[in-house]
Design a protein around this nucleic acid. Structure first.
Lengths: 219, 219
DNA sequence: CAATACATGTTGCAATTGCAACAAATTCGA
DNA sequence: TCGAATTTGTTGCAATTGCAACATGTATTG
């Protein structure tokens, strides 16, 4: 995986990318499953772009509750500057799931104009714009899911969004069923109980990580 | 409130703004409290920018539960293209709170290059970039708030974020206490009960819409 | 291949939350 | 300014959820 394939440099030719990268002080790193990619305990101005693999942004609160704040896949951006207030003392970090290649650089290079190289700065901002607009959509649907008051409501909302995204009433979860509980921010056993209810009521079917929506409850 | 003051046109001089606006088929509208600014029941590709006043994006679900999906203030952008899957049959709309002036235009003018006028397209994208990056921060902290499992957790998270944002342990709620329940997506009476508990435990003080944090519980 | 970690599945019980139905205070609008 | 609408405040009760503690099944890895 080549750093110049980074979606941030889409539309900028190789030679110029080389020049810009040095100006950016960018670097690429690889990570193995469960490795910590980034820790936000004490400030971090770097932006990361996932070139391959998958990762999750995790919060562990003072009671040890684990929450998936963001799920990250190929071409997703992440960073403290793009999210999260850092107002709490909870532990927030990005954890590798499938082996990852990550491009890091400093966000200030996007927001501030750079004097030397950047006739391509324009393209760069446009590329970053697309990445952020996409992230905004993801965050919005996350809010939509979490805004439901019951576990069932959250699950059905998430399943519906996934179903629309994958254009089928049958779709794959991007993570384990247990991690789904972290994603919808509820207790795992309570979620399992609710999933069982939904199965017996014929709302959904599940086979491993494949979910099939049978009835669109109350929609 | 002049359409040319729209943050989208920041850095573009007046004459060019006039030219671009006609190319954009933009228009400005004013709204009175409780008026519907925009309805997302059946698709809407327009982007809106709030020039003045305040508004909320509201969802009413099939059970009649009211949820504030977004709070919108001066210079905030909103639109279906920027958020919300449209996968559900719930009613989603933007409702004026304080008298509003809104600039509407089609998102496609930002994402696709326009042939005739747009030597200023670059500045436009940069301006839009800033607006969206800001919105992303707002959505992220929203996720952070909603990710907490208890009403108290949500409240304290929201209060902490507000406190950091307003740089004081004392701050104003941007809406009524009742609307706060819609914002944190819980039952109003249950939230009132929890607020009372938090007051008697000395965690917070409240006077109308002014909240003061007395103790940072478990942080 | 063994053993160790991880994921799934289940249950009782206590705590929290949502709901319904009020009363009172405050704000808004004609 | 008076009446209507909205907001705030409260409570009992039922439903949902979180927690703890299991048992079992499935991957991973040395």
């Amino acid at each position: 995986m080549d750093i110049y394939n980074c979606p941030l440099f889409f539309g900028i030719d190789h030679d110029d990318s080389v020049q810009m990268l040095s100006c950016f002080e960018s670097n690429v790193k690889s990570f193995a499953p469960r490795e910590t990619i980034c820790n936000y305990s004490q400030g971090n101005s770097k932006i990361g772009i996932l070139q391959s693999g998958s990762a999750n942004m995790i919060r562990i609160d003072h009671d040890g509750n684990r929450t998936i704040l963001e799920t990250l896949e190929k071409n997703n951006v992440f960073g403290e500057a793009l999210a999260f207030s850092g107002s709490s003392k909870d532990s927030i970090f990005v954890e590798c799931e499938k082996p990852c290649s990550v491009v890091f650089f400093d966000y200030s290079h996007i927001t501030k104009r750079c004097e030397n190289v950047c006739m391509h700065h324009t393209i760069l901002v446009q590329n970053m714009f697309r990445l952020i607009a996409e992230k905004l959509l993801v965050m919005s649907s996350r809010v939509e899911v979490l805004s439901h008051r019951t576990i069932r409501g959250k699950l059905m909302c998430y399943f519906n969004i996934s179903s629309v995204a994958q254009n089928s009433t049958s779709f794959q979860l991007p993570f384990s069923v247990s991690a789904l509980a972290d994603y919808i921010c509820t207790d795992r056993s309570a979620m399992m109980r609710e999933l069982k209810n939904m199965k017996t009521e014929g709302l959904i079917e599940m086979d491993k990580r494949t979910v099939t929506i049978k009835k669109l409850s109350q929609l």
